[in-house]
Design a binder for these strands. Structure first.
Lengths: 334, 334
DNA sequence: ATGAAAGCGCTAACAC
DNA sequence: GTGTTAGCGCTTTCAT
């Protein structure tokens, strides 16, 4: 028998069927372990798969079955550790269920979010995961029209489109303020990054200020830095804030990175914490626990948010809002 | 039991063609702006697209054209900031070229890497991006058989399969050791995380030790922690190392996170830096610059690695190795 | 400049 | 238990 050399870059299911001496649908059934087939057939098919090094084409499979196992993430940033954490939680669940994570980064720009959401939809994902509730009308329209599951993450202060997983940023801000008031601080300032883009940080700030006001200790001063949140901006922000308002007794930072920067500023200037100045963060990063004085902060369920969100999608759960809450960490800096 | 999500009826290209009163191929040409068509036809098609809210199905498009615009990342971790940084650099380039990033996380497990690489290949990506050169034989086999571009990232100490972008970890370790020797340190220790899994950290450590040995100041002691790299592990590691070998004059950490932990340990114990103990890291994170004493470290081109890798893929560059180098940062901690 | 028709590789009915 | 066949929604010749 003469075997002709075929320059075929990829093996197809049809070739496996030929090699195994069975029909295509049988191979498909065996590979998906669905429907019925004999032990013997299964072995023959698997042998052929092995021999030919067959890798199923999920593009074709998805098209044929009109149900994709792609989950699209449209996230603001990969620099803010929050989002890698969410992705991490989600991808663990997705991978074990045969789903595939796809992502793009909006850079906190809602126009980009709209464009990227549209681009994502072209892949006909099973679900689209987004940060928060603030989306353009265009984004909302195409999402609703898409018919795929929509998951809004890390924000519960608003109305969910379909699924929502996270916690209330407004409440996180309130709890932070209550804590500082309870500890007796009255001259309280704020150092944060761009609130217009990071709307969740904006909601925390609102909740924080509202509670301070109600507690008869309205926000004494604030310093909002233009760029993204970072340790350096935190340091710079506190420096500016104290230059302007030296008599503050506590500062609330938009997150732990910023707070760490503030901590470094105090270290460098010999400002003792918390006696001269208290510092409070947000996120509950591991780094806060390793500081000489553990950082007082709010621990957020970032990985859990990703996990639960993925689980809801994978199990095709009905529309719902899942509040994972957050935890106050009474460290040593406030 | 997972439930496959079914999409609600979506608008197809055929419906757009009908609505516009043209053939399917004409719609396709207009949408991809390829081939020739009249102004008038273009307007009619675009009007119909708009009216029906048509979103092209890239699954179908990819299947028909046998050329995907998916780029698959198989990365060890999302907790180690290195990989989000690489993804960030890459996704910026990929998005503007109409490519889509897909990822999965191996958790530094080469068996998982093999399984995930295979799963990725099922999506017929244009390229697969992996960390480093250490892969199982199985991984190598399926990658080579796949016919798609392969990019190995962040490691140049080995033989590239196709494309490689990064720098030499061996050299980074050597340069770190040379620096410490040049500064006069002679009793040098090491604090690191799991070297078997993170082979790039292992290469740095090798280069470091080799240079120390050649400089007549062989590594005095080392503390390897079981878990992943973290600030807390850095702190704990330094504590243990000094308990065993108190007379060290410098410590090299497997990365900046660990080094920051060591810095915190010194702060807490009143060990003055660098006079009593010098600290040297790796990665050049922003956080190091904001420390009261800037961290002495090696800055690695993480975002650039992602960018260049993406560019090579998008432009279908010939096989090559791109050495982006790294930069010694002479901070104040060593 | 445009349309008809043949796939891309698979899944899902439906026969047998 | 297994094979046959008709699509999934597009791209791509190849005519016209």
């Amino acid at each position: 028998m003469t075997v002709e050399f075929k320059h075929q870059p990829t093996v197809t299911l049809a070739e496996v069927a030929d090699a195994a001496g069975v029909g295509e649908s049988t191979v498909s059934r065996v590979l998906r372990n669905y429907g019925s087939f004999s032990e013997k057939t299964r072995d023959r098919v698997m042998a052929a798969v092995e021999r030919l090094g067959y890798v199923p084409n999920r593009i074709a499979g998805t098209l044929a079955s009109t149900g994709s196992r792609l989950v699209a993430f449209v996230i603001p940033s990969l620099s803010n550790i929050v989002f890698p954490d969410v992705l991490r939680g989600a991808s663990a669940i997705l991978e074990e269920s045969g789903y595939q994570a796809v992502f793009s980064v909006t850079d906190y720009d809602s126009q980009r979010e709209e464009a990227l959401a549209a681009a994502m939809l072209a892949w006909r994902p099973a679900a689209v995961m987004l940060a928060g509730y603030e989306h353009t009308d265009g984004t909302l329209k195409i999402l609703r029209a898409s018919g795929c599951r929509i998951v809004e993450l890390l924000d519960l202060d608003g109305a969910a489109l379909d699924l929502a997983v996270g916690f209330s940023n407004l409440a996180a801000g309130r709890v932070s303020a209550e804590f500082l008031l309870r500890r007796g601080y009255r001259r309280i300032g704020y150092v944060g990054h761009d609130l217009n883009r990071d709307t969740r940080a904006g909601k925390r700030f609102s909740g924080f200020c509202a509670t301070l006001g109600a507690g008869d200790a309205p926000l004494a001063d604030r310093e909002i830095l233009a760029g993204a949140s970072s340790v350096e901006n935190g340091r710079l922000g506190l420096e500016r804030l104290l230059a302007r308002t030296p008599d503050l007794d506590a500062v609330y930072f938009s997150n732990d990175d910023m707070a760490l920067g503030g901590y470094f500023h105090c270290l460098a200037r010999g400002i003792s914490i918390p006696s001269q100045l208290a510092i409070f963060g947000y996120n509950g990063l591991d780094i806060g626990r390793a500081m000489p004085q553990p950082l007082s902060t709010i621990r957020t369920p970032r990985v859990a948010t990703g996990k639960i969100a993925a689980q809801l999608v994978v199990t095709n759960a009905p529309p719902q809002v899942v509040d994972l809450g957050f935890e106050l960490i009474e460290g040593a800096t406030a």
